[in-house]
Structures are given as C-alpha cells and as structure tokens.
C-alpha cells in the first residue's frame, strides 16, 4: 500500500504588505516540520515551485483592489477545497481600504486613478475576500499571530474546527496579568471592542490597543467611544482610531462614521 498522499497547501497574495504570509516563514521552529507533513505547492514568496490545483487548503493574504484580482480570487476559490483568509487586508480590506471612505483626499486620489484606466488597473475600493467568494475561515490580525496560523493550518488539514478565541483583548489582558491602561493610566484603548489573538501586546507595553485584530463579535463601540471622549479624545481622534487597519470592518466603519464632521 502506498503512503497517504500529502495534503497540498497553496499561499496566495493580493494587495498587502506580505507580513501575514511571512508569518509562515517566521515559524522558524515549525516550518521544516510543517513542510515535512504537508506539500507546499504554491508559495511564490518562498519558492519557484508552482503546481496547478486542486489544493486542499489555500491561505489568502491581501485585499481585492483590481478587476484582475477580483477574477483571480474566483479562480483560487474554484481550485481550493478550503479557503482561509489571513490578516486584516484579506478579512477587512486592510489599511488601503481607507480609500473606500468619503474623505475628500481619498476621493481625489480615486478620481486621479480612474482618469487613467489604461495606465493602471485599480478599483475605487479595497474589499475583503469574503465580499467576492465564500470563505471557510477568517484569521484576524495586522499581522496575524503565527501560532494561530499553525493552529488553523493543522485544524483544516485534520478537518476539525480551529481553536481560535473570539473574545475581546480585555480577556487577554486579564489572562496576561496586565494592568488596565484605561482605568489605571487614563490611556484610551480599543481593547474592549477588539478581537483577541495578539495576546494583549499593546497594554503590556503601556500603550492602548489600536485595534489591529478588528472588531470582536457584537462589540459595544458606542459605549467605548463615549469613554474615549471622557478621557479627552476629540471626535477626529475617535474617528481615526476606528478607521485604521480594520476600518472597513462593519462595526468599526459604523462607529467611525458617527464621528464624521457634519457636512
């Protein structure tokens, strides 16, 4: 009897900084073991090898910002048994989704782009992958946590549910023994509404969370925004805080729009 075939993993890049796929190469202790257990058949950042589909698992980094990429992600979906998006660009459009807002500067930028469609192929918006194709799992973070990445890869290859917590950064702070920067130091913090996964690094470094893992499930952003205002944050500060790396994620987008100046 021949040994069971190795599962085939593919890594794809859309508009992004490369940091989330780099997380796989940053698994210095696990990388060689992972590559012994599974077949990495497409990962251009790391290898010249390219093999056509089908793939057992596709990891997708980056957001859709061109018509070509909108088509390419459909192709990737067709060839992939499971498709997992990794990072804020893929799950929420990323920092480049700031172009999606009605902000004057960004509107001007988009019109400049559209004036020369043959010069450069780019869309007016940066959108998450799930807005284009069905996604089996979204791993949050800007960047993702590499330990969570390994967990997700193993879970999908063994067809079980990934063990990834969906509570807020506040819970991680308690687990880590951090002093609350908001109550103890009066530092505005997005931790109460932000998805866990980073292990509450910012508060551990005496800094407020800046929301790089995006909104948790059912976050009470309005209440938190009031608390920020009480600590002295201006309306523009609050708008910018919600409108960053995950600014186009629904809950953060709605909260930032509440702090738009009246037109």
């Amino acid at each position: 009897m021949s040994p069971p075939e190795k599962k085939r993993l593919a890594v794809w890049k859309f508009a992004s900084c490369d940091g989330c796929q780099l997380s796989l190469l940053d698994c210095e202790d696990e990388l060689l073991a992972v590559s012994d257990a599974i077949d990495i058949v497409n990962f251009p950042e790391a290898t010249r090898r390219f093999e056509p589909g089908p793939y057992d698992l596709s990891l997708v980094e980056g957001s859709v910002t061109t018509a070509h990429d909108a088509e390419r992600i459909r192709q990737v979906r067709e060839e992939s048994r499971y498709l997992v998006t990794i990072g804020a660009c893929a799950t929420a459009g990323g920092i480049q989704a700031l172009r999606n807002f009605r902000d004057a500067e960004v509107r001007e930028m988009a019109s400049v782009v559209y004036a020369s469609p043959d010069y450069l192929d780019t869309l007016e918006t940066s959108t998450p992958i799930a807005q284009h194709v069905p996604v089996d799992f979204e791993l949050r973070g800007c960047p993702i946590n590499k330990r969570q990445l390994v967990e997700v890869i193993l879970a999908f290859l063994h067809r079980r549910k990934p063990n990834v917590a969906s509570h807020s950064v506040c819970v991680e702070c308690k687990l880590r023994g951090n002093v609350c920067v908001m109550t103890a130091h009066g530092t505005p913090c997005l931790g109460p509404v932000t998805h866990a996964g980073c292990n509450a690094i910012c508060p551990a470094y005496d800094r407020g969370c800046y929301g790089c893992f995006g909104p948790m499930e059912t976050p009470n952003t309005t209440s938190l925004a009031k608390q920020w205002a009480a600590l002295g944050a201006s309306s523009d500060d609050i708008k910018r805080a919600f409108r960053s790396y995950n600014g186009y994620a629904e809950a953060f987008r709605q909260e930032s729009e509440r702090h738009e100046p009246d037109e």
Partner: peptide, 15 residues
C-alpha cells in the same frame, strides 16, 4: 504589477 496602495494619499490628515 503589485497593486498600489496609495499610502502617501491616505497619510494626509492622520495624526
């Protein structure tokens, strides 16, 4: 052919 992300544009009006 990496799509541009326009950092210089959206840095404007950030703190």
């Amino acid at each position: 052919f990496e799509p541009p992300r326009f950092f210089e544009a959206f840095l404007r009006k950030r703190g």
